[in-house]
Design a protein around this nucleic acid. Structure first.
Lengths: 114, 114
DNA sequence: TTATTAAGCTGTGAAGTCCAAAGTAACGGA
DNA sequence: TCCGTTACTTTGGACTTCACAGCTTAATAA
């Protein structure tokens, strides 16, 4: 993203948005971060239970992307049946923390309209 | 989204996510909210300048969606050339406020990695 | 002995989303 | 008469996401 020279001096004008914001603006990314944050460590199946609208392939892709972005870690245990555990990194946890007011707001809205 | 009965009692477990979160997890939605928040009122062209990666059709679709969700208003002036101004509603402004720590974090990350 | 089960994926073709580029409308100025 | 202005729509093609099937491997069940 190149630097557009914004007219305002407002520091809230984040014209240079990072790749991470791109990632965040993808389906289910916030959901995944939230679920992992709440559970501490999560297995794939648990994520599927919490976010049933997401296909396994999409979920898998999101986990890969989040790992690549350094927001979560993947620990694989060589057992049968396989076991894999996901956990937020410190960076991911910080994001989750900052995401909380947004989710809170979304929930407030969801309950208000029903 | 149906109610999966989450194992944790953690109030941060927002298993019932609203349509608005679906909207937020779409490309450029956070960007648009942020730009409008900073400028107060914005015209279409300004948004294009700030978010050049988004096509006009996508931008237009996002504005429609945000208006439909009650997060921004559209004021059209019958002039030639046409003038249309977008502004956040109170609800939209509250979202923008809660989004700020997230954007701040994203920016911190963007500058750190370069 | 063969079938089933488990979890965490990957692969498939179809459906949906997003893109760049061109087109639309209407009027004033050259 | 044609150009510039603004805020879009339209188009056909590329990229994403979908639901669903299949894969793996070893312990158990029939």
């Amino acid at each position: 993203m190149e630097g557009f020279d914004c007219a305002t001096d407002d520091p809230r004008c984040y014209c240079l948005l990072s790749d991470v914001l791109d990632l965040l603006g993808r389906k289910y990314v916030m959901d995944v971060v939230c679920v992992v944050a709440v559970h501490g460590t999560v297995r794939f199946g648990t994520l599927e239970d919490h976010i049933p609208e997401a296909s396994t392939s999409t979920l898998s892709a999101r986990l890969d992307a989040l790992e690549a972005a350094g927001l979560l870690t993947r620990e694989q245990y060589d057992e049968i049946p396989p076991r894999v555990e996901y956990e937020l990194t410190d960076d991911g946890a910080e994001l989750a923390e900052r995401l909380e007011p947004v989710l809170e707001w979304a929930q407030k809205r969801a309950t208000a309209e029903s």
